[in-house]
């Protein structure tokens, strides 16, 4: 289940930032990923909401510091 969520998130990252490959690491931050800026960050959140059919609030977003935080957030939302 967990790796499935991670794989789906990796697919969202690749789609959002138009990347061919992404070496997933829970500590990745914006400067580690090409194209991950303030504009595409919103696209990333919207794409994540659509893929997992969850709602992510602005305050949820403000609590995210890296890719691992986003994975944990999605996992939390899916178990509620």
């Amino acid at each position: 289940m967990e790796s499935n969520i991670q794989n789906r998130l990796i697919a969202i990252f690749k789609k959002t930032f138009e990347l061919e490959e992404l070496e997933w690491d829970g500590n990745l931050i914006a400067e580690d990923v090409d194209g991950w800026d303030s504009i595409t960050h919103l696209d990333l959140i919207v794409n994540t909401e659509e893929e997992f059919k969850i709602e992510i609030s602005g305050f949820d977003v403000m609590g995210l510091q890296n890719t691992g935080d986003l994975l944990s957030l999605v996992e939390r939302k899916l178990t509620v």
Binding site: I29, A30, D37, S38, H41, I45, F59, V61, M62, Q65
Partner: peptide
Amino acid sequence: HGDSNHLMTGALMQV
């Protein structure tokens, strides 16, 4: 506290 632009995006998303 994380990327400031992402934080600002979150603040705007909240409202």
